[in-house]
Design a protein around this nucleic acid. Structure first.
Lengths: 241, 241
DNA sequence: GACCGCGCTTTTGTATACACTGCACATTGA
DNA sequence: TCAATGTGCAGTGTATACAAAAGCGCGGTC
């Protein structure tokens, strides 16, 4: 949770994006439970490859890595299991699941194509100034990550951009979505975010933001669909080689 | 895990379905962990409406209901959270989530339409005699549940039929699927399985089984698509009124 | 060399203790 | 009467210790 105070010129300014600087109007945001902390740290480890597919995650190892005791560790592992990032075999331990096949990744994009434009429209309809500010903030950080060529960070912020918008929809489907997003991220951050492609994603994100600001749900839906279709093409091309 | 020994004439016989009678060739199937037990019991409670939407699930209540101690209870609740059946607010407790809106249910069917025919084909390609026997077994019990007019049981076996086939695909996407199936079941068991419609589902299931036996993945995929399209129409009609 | 049994490691389940939070209710003061 | 404040309880979050069962390897025996 890096809180950056002070307003200095940022490269993201060139897009006219306002970044929220540790302001006090965001809800208190209590520290996440330790289980969530475990979840985040280990997910990060998996996404960055520090824990490769098939790696064994002993409770003791996770305890050491995260510095929390067994109870939250176990809960965290259950959560990760729900996301499909790990699988635990009874009495033998939990292991990092294997990567998606090219086929599966493509399939997931088809699912995205069904779900996300719809959620984007719902989100646009129920958009609030606060959420809009969040979206803008995420986008600003996205730019910075791209400039710094931090592939993983960028991938994460990409996901956050989407999820923030959908969050506004208030739809129960979000929990379903979160699950496969993390799986996809593994592929994306490795095959796509190391290229120049995300620059074009950024343009699309900005256009979606414009439509959000304009309060035009139809347009948001349409642009989101285009955006995901684009992403799908890129991924397929990336998987092909 | 009811093990029914002895071979008596069953109504399902008329479809020529063989039901597996507690045979020993199934993998050892060790007793599920207590967390899974908690998961099943509470999921059941939610699906049957014993725990209505918005109900509060104190850890103490769940302990009492399932007879296990706090740690597995908490893990079980985390798993249910992953399925989207409950949501827990920090320091306040966990609550049964609200029902899907008609819109969301429809959307989920669109997702099914994308994912499941594909998984069915994959499953068909990698089908083994053992899994085929399982599918047949599930279908036999499905018939019995229909005859006994046990809506919930039938709904559950419907899900099991699908998931068993997909399991053979070995696809990692299954964990994603499981999540939304349970959500859908809530709607199905209430709005659809109390009608005469499932009889027609049964026919479709039988035809899919035939295609599986014939070892024709293309056909399996096609029939599965038809089946789900049919289900979609039924659900939409059911939601409409 | 194959088989068996033994013990170590690890996971699983249980119990208990304690801090902290949120909420409801009561008390107080205007 | 009513709002502000205090207080206690119910319930969650976390840590820890211990017992039981399952896997795994190791070495011994035939």
């Amino acid at each position: 949770m890096s809180i950056s105070k002070g307003r200095v010129a940022r490269r993201s300014d060139r897009y006219g994006l306002r970044r929220r600087d540790g302001d006090a109007d965001v809800p208190p945001e209590r520290p996440p439970s330790l289980a969530e902390h475990v979840c985040r740290v280990i997910r990060e480890d998996i996404l960055t490859g520090r824990q490769p597919a098939g790696a064994r995650l002993t409770e003791a190892i996770v305890m050491e890595r995260t510095g929390v005791s067994r109870t939250p560790v176990r809960e965290g592992l259950r959560m990760l299991e729900g996301e499909g990032l790990v699988i635990t075999y009874r009495s033998r331990g939990t292991f990092v699941t294997y990567r998606l096949t090219a086929e599966e990744a493509k399939l997931l994009y088809d699912v995205r194509l069904v779900l996300e434009p719809h959620l984007a429209r719902l989100g646009a309809e129920r958009m609030t100034p606060e959420v809009l500010a969040s979206v803008e903030d995420v986008l600003a950080r996205f730019v910075e990550a791209l400039d710094a060529a931090e592939a993983r960070e960028a991938g994460q912020l990409d996901a956050e951009f989407h999820l923030t918008i959908y969050e506004a929809s208030g739809s129960e489907l979000l929990s379903v979505l979160r699950g496969y997003w993390t799986r996809l991220q593994l592929e994306l951050s490795e095959r796509v975010y190391t290229t120049e492609v995300p620059r074009r994603f950024l343009d699309e994100h900005l256009q979606i933001l414009d439509a959000l600001k304009a309060g035009d749900p139809e347009q948001v839906e349409e642009r989101m669909r285009k955006h995901i279709e684009h992403g799908r093409t890129v991924l397929i091309k990336g998987l092909g080689k």
